[in-house]
């Protein structure tokens, strides 16, 4: 009962192949919206930024705020903490890159490049998420007086740089700018 065709086989084959290909293209295009819908939506992507009043954060105090669903640590570091971090040689660091979204991607992880910059070295603003598997490290703890992640034991120093443990990178620094001495805009 199969269709014995009198036309030359090449033409028939071409028709079948073309139809099959068109079907595959159609199915693939149809699949796209189903995948596309899983990506972050327009409201999530819209540059969300927050303004934080830091006037109440005195020396040695920390503030945690939420930005894009993540905790942001804002710490007014003591001179000792700043000095400890400054006196650490770059060679002693596990990750020598600053990971600062406000600087070039290859900026070195000096304390100045990690902090809010010249004149504001006491301020450290970073995303409070351990770069290992996403837990939130505890402040003012650990061997280096910085942060300690209770999940898998990563230890960060007073500039939020990874010093020991399984985490691969320094804690990330979000884009931010000081609008005044008391207000900072994150994002």
């Amino acid at each position: 009962m199969s269709a014995h065709d009198t036309a030359e086989p090449t033409r028939r084959d071409f028709l079948y192949i073309a139809t099959g290909m068109a079907g595959v293209v159609g199915a693939a295009s149809l699949a796209w919206p189903f995948i596309d819908q899983m990506r972050p939506d327009a409201s999530t992507l819209a540059a969300a930024s927050i303004e934080v009043d830091i006037s109440s954060v005195t020396e040695g105090m920390s503030l945690t705020v939420k930005w894009r669903g993540k905790p942001i640590f804002i710490r007014n570091r003591t001179p000792k903490e700043v000095d400890d971090a400054k006196n650490t040689a770059l060679s002693a660091l596990k990750d020598p890159v600053a990971r600062n979204a406000n600087l070039a991607s290859d900026a070195p992880a000096t304390d100045l490049e990690r902090s809010a910059g010249e004149g504001k070295e006491n301020w450290l603003i970073m995303i409070g998420i351990c770069t290992h598997l996403g837990c939130i490290p505890l402040g003012e703890s650990g061997e280096y007086g910085g942060w300690f992640c209770p999940c898998h034991g990563s230890t960060y120093d007073t500039a939020g740089r990874i010093r020991s443990g399984p985490a691969p990178e320094n804690m990330a620094i979000p884009p931010y700018e000081f609008l005044s001495d008391t207000h900072v805009k994150i994002g």
Binding site: W32, P33, F34, D36, Q37, R39, D41, A42, S43, T44
Partner: peptide, 13 residues
Amino acid sequence: EKIMRDVNSGWLL
């Protein structure tokens, strides 16, 4: 309405 406005391809789905 969020599906219709913000979700990628949401209006189509």
